[in-house]
Computed example of a mutant assay.
Amino acid sequence: MTDRHSAAPDRLHSLPRYRQPLPRESVSRHIVVMQSAGACAPFVGELEQPLVLNGESADFSRRLHQVLVGATVGSHLYIMGDEAFIWRIHGEARSAGLENDEIDITCTLAGARLVYCVHCGLTQAAGPEALLTCINCDVGLEVREHFSQRLGAYLGVCTNPDQPFAGARS
Rank of each mutant, 00 (worst) to 15 (best):
I86C: 05
S75Q: 02
P23M: 10
I31S: 03
E83H: 05
G70L: 02
S170P: 11
Y116H: 15
G156M: 02
C107N: 10
G55V: 05
L98G: 01
T159C: 14
R11H: 14
S95H: 07
S95Q: 12
H146E: 13
E102D: 09
P161G: 03
D59Y: 02
R11G: 06
L68K: 07
L131Q: 14
G74K: 05
H30Y: 07
E25K: 15
H65C: 10
E25Y: 05
G45N: 11
Y154K: 06
P164L: 03
L132K: 07
P50S: 09
L132I: 07
A112G: 09
P9I: 10
T159V: 15
C137L: 01
Q35I: 04
G167S: 11
G140T: 11
I105E: 00
V69S: 08
N100D: 13
N54C: 13
C107I: 01
G97W: 00
M80T: 04
A130C: 10
A168R: 15
C137M: 01
N100L: 11
T108P: 01
N54Q: 06
V33D: 01
C158R: 08
L53M: 06
I103H: 00
L51H: 08
G70T: 09
R24L: 07
T108L: 04
S26H: 13
M80D: 04
A84P: 03
V32A: 03
S36A: 12
A41G: 11
R19H: 14
S14F: 05
A7D: 06
T133A: 07
L122R: 15
R150T: 15
E46D: 11
H65A: 13
I103M: 04
L151K: 12
R19N: 10
S170V: 12
P161V: 10
V32P: 02
Y154M: 06
V52E: 05
G121K: 09
C137Q: 05
G91D: 00
G167K: 08
A37H: 12
Q35S: 02
L15W: 03
A7P: 04
C120L: 09
V115K: 00
S170H: 13
L51Q: 12
H90G: 02
R62M: 10
Q163T: 15
V115Q: 01
H146D: 12
P164Q: 03
Q124T: 12
H65G: 07
A168L: 12
C137A: 05
D10P: 07
L131G: 08
L141R: 04
L77T: 02
H30N: 15
A153H: 00
L109K: 10
T108G: 03
R150M: 12
W87K: 03
G140L: 04
I103K: 00
H146K: 05
G97A: 01
H65L: 10
V67C: 10
R113N: 08
Q20L: 11
